[in-house]
Amino acid sequence: MSVLWIDGVGCFWISLAERVTVGGPGSPSSKPPHPRDVADIAILSDLKRRHATIVRTGEGYLLEAHGPARVAGRDVLDRTTLSEEALIELGRSVQWRIRQPSALSLSARLDFVSDHRPTQAVDGLVMLADTCLLGPGDENHIVCSDWPGQVLLVRQQDELWCRSRLDLTVNGDRLGNGKRLRSGDVVMGADLRFRIEMRAVILPGNE
């Protein structure tokens, strides 16, 4: 899981995995939980520790319910496909909406509709299939209204690369045709700046 801190925009999580588990924080214990017992997205809510899994397939997205869940107002007993702008309801009150704003990309963005968040503020999650678009228009996965142009985060195997037509630098070096992003890199332009952090797993309270 990667975390994007974008000036003037917000904080977004980027997942390269095909399966992302969602759940609650679990009960606190003396020992830190094992990473496999923690959901990829552990939000402060009354959900099971692993409540649902969002799966990216070759053609779209599925929701596998491990606890009470509804999609587009219908109960999910096992799994269901997630259509564009489908409202995902987990448990009693957690609500997300899935969007695929770009027809050219299979990547999807999950917006938090209800006020439930991880222990610290996150504005959305991007399940990155091939590219993640950042820019001023609504066709971008992360809308950055005041940016002069578009920035692409491109997946190359398990690595993230940054590309843009804008004159950008990565840690002070010119971006050129693109650079591989590593944890802690800061991408900066005349009117934009963001930083990326990469974490193996984000434990509750340890974002």
């Binding site: 000036d7 005041d146 802690g184 005349a190 934009l192 930083r195």
Partner: peptide, 9 residues
């Protein structure tokens, strides 16, 4: 938009 302080400052 330029800001005086960068991330992790």
């Amino acid at each position: 938009m330029k800001f005086t302080f960068g991330p992790e400052s």
